[in-house]
């Protein structure tokens, strides 16, 4: 069978390795699972299933990352200060950074549906931005690191805020009261 000129782009698009809805759906229905020692199995699943929600996984991963940051702040406050050029006692870094991150991290890792805790993180991010802005001055020998950290925190703030908005809007009962 020959292909007309108008059919060619459509045929190309259908054969291209784009993540089409059907391909994503098929991938979701045939998940690959780790079974240890580096081995994995592709398993069967049911076609009767909801589209996977992304926000709960994001919330969980934010929590896990916060636990890592919290441990850094709690166990190595002097290192945090040295990296960013912070002029504050270790106890302050432990409390305002380490303990805060650990608290939000454990809460979200334990229950990623807690949208209120995501908003708490956004408030904490704004505090971090204010601190990092104050460190972005010519007198700070670690100004470059502070600037880089500010960029990272701005991105994290956006992620926290988007996840908080999405998790706050979830209607788990499908409209029922």
């Amino acid at each position: 069978m020959t292909m007309t000129a108008s059919e060619a782009p459509a045929a190309f698009l259908s054969k291209a390795p784009w993540p089409t809805r059907e391909r994503l759906s098929r991938l979701a229905r045939s998940p690959s699972m780790q079974i240890g020692r580096g081995k994995s199995l592709t398993v069967s699943t049911d076609r009767v299933r909801a589209a996977p929600a992304i926000s709960p996984s994001l919330s969980m991963n934010i929590g896990m990352t916060a636990i890592g940051l919290g441990l850094w702040g709690l166990l190595f406050p002097r290192h945090v200060s040295r990296v960013l050029g912070i002029q504050a006692p270790p106890a302050v870094v432990r409390t305002l950074f380490g303990a805060r991150e650990l608290w939000t991290g454990f809460t979200l890792a334990g229950d990623p549906t807690k949208a209120g805790m995501l908003w708490t993180r956004v408030a904490g991010d704004i505090f971090d931005i204010a601190v990092l802005r104050s460190l972005d001055n010519p007198g700070n020998r670690r100004r470059g690191a502070a600037k880089a950290a500010l960029g990272v925190v701005l991105a994290v703030t956006a992620l926290d805020a988007i996840t908080a908005v999405r998790m706050s809007k979830v209607d788990r009962n499908g409209g029922a009261r």
Partner: peptide
Amino acid sequence: QGKKDIRCEEV
């Protein structure tokens, strides 16, 4: 839909 996240959804 994840840990502690049950939803009533269209399937």
